[in-house]
Design a binder for these strands. Structure first.
Lengths: 170, 170
DNA sequence: CTTGGAATGTCAACAAGGCTGACTTAAAGT
DNA sequence: ACTTTAAGTCAGCCTTGTTGACATTCCAAG
């Protein structure tokens, strides 16, 4: 695999030798941190009687205004029925607008309305402020390591999507 | 809101200045990585018609054999009714044993049976192997950073629990 | 000793949000 | 003209969260 050449290196075998205990700590850290990660937006969503599914839809529509339903489906990794339920309420509540495609009239392009943008801001402010605090606390080196590990934990397909989103914004 | 002070400067201070774009990438990385993180055990669970809730219960019982239901509740952060449903099936399937407390007969102490331990091994092998691969790929410095950021993203209460688990094992 | 309150756990019912399957409509592609 | 693709809809299921009601046990104050 890719770790043949990680065998080298200095004094101890800290690079190659990972105890189950170290890995277990990593697993538990992910569990607790993910809870923290979603805690703040969850509070806002609850008062609007939305759920995380709505948040995810809003987030990714805002990343890629005008994206199609099919595209969103691939990113979110859920079925169209599942997404549709959420999308329907967001459209009914005037947070998302669905426009028929100009080139291909089968497609629907999704946009956040002003109200949708406002909610997106509110949600991601909450989420970002926790992440900003964490990032500041630990410094840029730790942040770089954090990002490296997370990327390495994704599937190839997820990495592709993740990078596509990043490049889509420059 | 909270970003009043993120408005300042674009100069050199990478430590203090975090663009919304950098934070957004962190958020998306968490989203995709968490999917990867749970993907492997999810496959095993599916073939046994269990869900993530079962996995979590098994994981934390295995960390602290003999823990009480109440204790588990605090760690998992769900209602006792929700946990109970999962626990009931695990007990019925002979993976978990519930013993009435000797001191306080209101308490139930939870233990993994041999079958439970076997499943725990299988699940965490799957999860660990992805994490091990990721950790090896990026090296120990990145791993340290990863852990720092995750800890910083937890609530104080979660940090307490996370550290308690770690110390409970030495 | 008894009795009331707190702690612990169980049962029942409901909601959110995943899932599958079957079907329709409209627009492209061939 | 026929097939494929994009999207939406309806129905029904499962997991896993929630609340409310209830039983048991313990403990402490009267």
């Amino acid at each position: 695999m890719a770790e043949l050449h990680s065998a080298q290196s200095h004094g101890g075998e800290s690079l190659l030798f990972l105890t189950d205990e170290q890995l277990r700590q990593g697993i538990e850290a992910m569990f607790f941190a993910y809870r923290g990660f979603t805690a703040d937006p969850d509070l806002i969503l609850q008062e609007l009687s939305y759920g995380r599914a709505h948040h995810r839809a809003i987030h990714f529509i805002s990343c890629a205004q005008g994206t199609t339903v099919n595209n969103l489906l691939a990113i979110l990794g859920v079925t169209k029925q599942s997404l549709n339920r959420v999308l329907r309420t967001l459209i009914a509540d005037g947070l998302v607008e669905s426009r028929v495609g100009r080139m291909d009239k089968r497609e629907r392009h999704l946009f956040l309305t002003d109200a949708g943008l406002a909610l997106e801001q509110r949600l991601s402010d909450a989420q970002r402020s926790r992440m900003r605090a964490a990032f500041r606390q630990v410094g840029p080196e730790a942040v770089a390591g954090f990002r490296k590990v997370l990327e390495a934990m994704m599937d190839t397909e997820m990495q592709r999507q993740y990078r596509a989103l990043r490049e889509g914004r420059g």
